[in-house]
């Protein structure tokens, strides 16, 4: 059983040593191991290949594999930093590390900026913000007229685009978030502090493996 488990881990594409991942993230080794339990659960929900496919990510987020959502797509794309269409274990842990309560605020601010920079131009453009507000309205019960949406976007831009060039750069974004810290509230997941309680079984598996 132990040998099988050990071989199985080595064969998983993208599997990385928990001690290395722990050294590069706010997680401890046992927390990384617990995250592997969560990763296994998500990555085997549709295709059991040790990788999180977009449908599996959607299923984990929404309990519905077909539910498309602009923001979930953006999160998936940022987690998939190799840009190969799947999330590997190392990518999963490093990306979730940004959401750890102890992760540097600067990392959270930058991550949120990249999230909202839909077209990877290095700026949040007005059209992107407009598109994101429409996407949010689509998924919620909030009904606002086009005029009101335009006003909301204009007002936000007039507050955030301090240079007045019609786009928000990273410096403007940092300044805007410092005045509105609630904007990165969703970049912190309190669950990540209790991950070993939520997903403890890997630790037990490791002990079996070590004694083999």
């Amino acid at each position: 059983m132990g040998c099988f488990h050990s071989k199985h881990l080595r064969q998983i594409p993208g599997y990385e040593d928990p001690t290395i991942l722990a050294s590069e993230t706010p997680f401890t080794v046992s927390e990384v191991e617990a995250l592997y339990e969560l990763f296994k659960k998500i990555s085997s929900s549709i295709i059991d290949d040790g990788l999180i496919h977009k449908e599996e990510f959607q299923l984990a987020l929404f309990r519905n594999r077909n539910r498309r959502n602009l923001f979930a797509d953006r999160i998936f794309d940022l987690f998939d930093y190799k840009r190969n269409g799947v999330i590997e274990f190392g990518e999963f842990v490093r990306s979730l590390g940004v959401f750890h309560p102890n992760a540097p605020t600067a990392d959270k601010v930058t991550f949120a900026f990249r999230l909202y920079d839909l077209r990877h131009t290095g700026y949040i453009e007005r059209e992107e913000l407009y598109e994101m507000v429409l996407a949010l309205l689509n998924e919620s019960d909030l009904a606002l007229s086009d005029d009101v949406v335009e006003m909301i976007v204009d007002k936000t831009f007039s507050d955030a685009d301090t240079k007045g060039d019609g786009r928000i750069d990273l410096d403007e974004w940092k300044e805007f978030v410092s005045k509105n810290p609630s904007l990165i509230k969703n970049m912190t997941l309190p669950y990540l502090k209790d991950i070993t309680l939520a997903f403890p079984s890997f630790v037990l598996n490791t002990e079996v493996e070590d004694s083999d």
Binding site: L38, L61, F71, F99, L129, L136, V148, M151, N180, N186
Partner: peptide, 26 residues
């Protein structure tokens, strides 16, 4: 807040797609 004074980023940060806590629900 009236809709016009809403912060657009505040609004979009409420998206379910950005709420990763559901990944941890069993």
């Amino acid at each position: 807040a009236t809709p016009v004074t809403m912060n657009a980023f505040e609004l979009i940060s409420k998206s379910q797609g950005l709420n990763l806590s559901s990944l941890f629900e069993k």
